[in-house]
Structure formats: structure tokens, C-alpha cells
Simulated assay, not measured.
Amino acid sequence: MAGWMKTSLFWLTVIIAATYGISYWLDNKSFIFTHGDLEDLAMKFKGTTIQKSFKTLVRDLKHRYGPHILDADKSSFFFVNAGGWMGQVCPLHVSLTEYVLVFNTVQESRGHSGRYWLNITDFVIDGWMEQWKEQTFRVENFTAGVTVFHPWLTSAGVHFGAGSWFLEYGRGFVPSSMFFASADAFFSTHDFISWFAMIKAFGLGLAQEAFLSAEEFIAHVFDS
């Protein structure tokens, strides 16, 4: 019994220390993206279809953020099933603390938003989404041109209209969302091809940001 208590106390201490460390890191680090910039870029395409404007949106993001946006040959759409809803996403930036992606659903879909250690912002370019926040008794509807904010550690019922597409920005501890995004692939759909595409995009994004950070550090060392 004493050994079990020591082990439990050890892991509890590790979890508390890790939680505090990550919180401190998130509170004190600088971020690449701003909500204002992303909103301005997304709303230029308000009311247009994804077929018409997707490539131009990616080009504009690439022009604004350079190598922090994945090249076209490294990013592609894949299915995500999570919390009952189904959509397809194209990750454009992935790091441990930020992500930018395009979300699209051709069919109406609804389910649970999930609950993450992330603030998530959806810039609705076309279509609509509904949000039923916990501990409320009404549904909010958001149409093209509206920005929808999902605060960290909150959850909601979500409903996406057919043909809707958004630019989505997440800021926080990105790995906290991975189990939710992966669970259906293992326990429901068995769509391991889409799951592998998601893990590949996550890995490519992390590798690219690590390379850019190393390049910046080396340049700083030589400049000093």
C-alpha cells in the first residue's frame, strides 16, 4: 500500500508540475499569428465557395507568414470524425502552441465540440454553424463573415451547415486536442488512412517549426 501511495504521489507531482510549467510557458511566450490578421485575411473571401477561394487564401497566408505556412505539396484535406461530427480539414500551420487550418463540410454535420487546453477561433467564410453552449438553453447561429470564439476548457454542441468552410486558429497546448481528434479513428470509423494523414501533418508542421527555430537561433548567434 505504501508503495502504491508513493507512486501515485510521484505521478500527481509530475502532472501538477507539468501543468504549471506548460501554463507558465503559454503565458509568457510570443505567438506567430494574431486574431486580427487572420480575420482580415479570411473575411476577404466572405461568401465565396471553397472551390473558388481556397488556393487564393493559402497564397495570401503564405505571403503574410512565409515559411510558417506549409507548402501546398505538404498539405492536403483529410477526413476528421470527432464527437459525432464529420468534416475535412487542411492543416496549414502546426506547432505545439498554435495551429491554422481550413475546415470544410459538404454535408450537414453535428456533434460535440470537445474540450481542450486551447482557445479556438473560427472565421466563418461561407455557410453557417450553430453553437449550443453548456449550461445554456438556446442555440446561437453564426453565418458568413462572423468570428466564433471557443474559450479553452469549455465545450458546446456544434452544428455545421452543408457547404460551410472556415479558417480556424487554435492557440494553447495543441497536443491536448489530439486524443479527441483521433479517438473515432480507433473506436468507431477505423479510418486509419485519415488518421495517418493527420499525424503526418502534425509531424511535418512540428518539424518545419523546429527547423525555423533552429535557423533563427543560429542567425542570432552569428549576429551577436
Score class of each variant (00 low, 15 high):
Leu96Ser: 11
Phe77Ala: 10
Ala207Ile: 07
Gly84His: 00
Ile193Ala: 04
Ser177Phe: 05
Thr189Cys: 04
Phe31Glu: 09
Val80Met: 07
Gln107Cys: 04
Phe142His: 15
Tyr116Met: 01
Gly21Ile: 04
Arg64Tyr: 08
Gly84Phe: 00
Asp191Cys: 01
Ser75Phe: 08
Ser113Arg: 03
Leu96Tyr: 09
Ser8Asp: 00
Phe79His: 10
Phe179Trp: 12
Asp40Val: 09
Val221Trp: 12
Phe78Asn: 13
Met129Trp: 02
Ile125Asp: 04
Met178Tyr: 14
Phe31Lys: 07
Met5Gln: 13
Ser23Phe: 09
Thr121Ala: 04
Gly84Ala: 02
Gln88Asp: 09
Gly83Arg: 03
Phe217Gln: 10
His150Met: 07
His150Phe: 15
Ile120Cys: 09
Glu39His: 08
Thr143Tyr: 02
Asp191Asn: 04
Pro151Phe: 07
Asn119Val: 02
Phe186Asp: 00
Ser213Ile: 06
Lys29Ala: 01
Val102Asn: 14
His159Met: 07
Thr49Cys: 01
Gly163His: 08
Val102Met: 15
Ala185Glu: 09
Ala2Ile: 14
His112Leu: 06
Gln88Glu: 15
Lys74Gln: 11
Gly83Glu: 02
His68Tyr: 14
Leu92Cys: 14
Lys200Asn: 09
Ala185Tyr: 14
Phe103Tyr: 15
Ile50Lys: 15
Val124Gln: 03
Leu118Ser: 00
Phe222Thr: 10
Asp126Thr: 09
Thr97Met: 03
Lys62Gly: 15
Gln107Asp: 13
Val58Thr: 07
Phe187Tyr: 12
Leu167Gly: 14
Glu134Gln: 05
Asp73Leu: 08
Lys29Trp: 05
Tyr99Gly: 05
Tyr24Ala: 12
Glu209Val: 09
Phe166His: 11
Gly205Leu: 06
Trp132His: 09
Thr19Asp: 02
Lys200His: 10
Ser155Tyr: 10
Phe77Gly: 06
His35Ala: 12
Pro175Leu: 00
Phe180Glu: 04
Phe173Arg: 01
Met1Thr: 13
Gly205Ala: 02
Pro151Ser: 05
His190Gly: 02
His93Pro: 08
His63Thr: 07
Ala72Asn: 13
Leu204Thr: 12
Gly145Arg: 11
Val94Ala: 00
His93Cys: 10
Val100Thr: 06
Ser224Phe: 10
Gly203Asp: 08
Ile69Cys: 06
Arg64Phe: 01
Leu118Tyr: 03
Arg64Met: 14
Ile199Gly: 00
Leu153His: 12
Lys133Ser: 10
His220Asp: 12
Lys6Ala: 15
Lys74Trp: 00
Ile32Tyr: 05
Gly157Met: 04
Ile16Gln: 12
Tyr99Ala: 06
Phe202Ala: 04
Ile199Thr: 05
Leu12Gly: 15
Gly36Trp: 03
Ile22Tyr: 02
Ala207Asn: 07
Ala2Thr: 10
Lys44Ile: 11
Phe10Tyr: 13
Ser23Gln: 12
Ile69Leu: 06
Asn81Ile: 06
Ser53Val: 04
Thr147Gln: 10
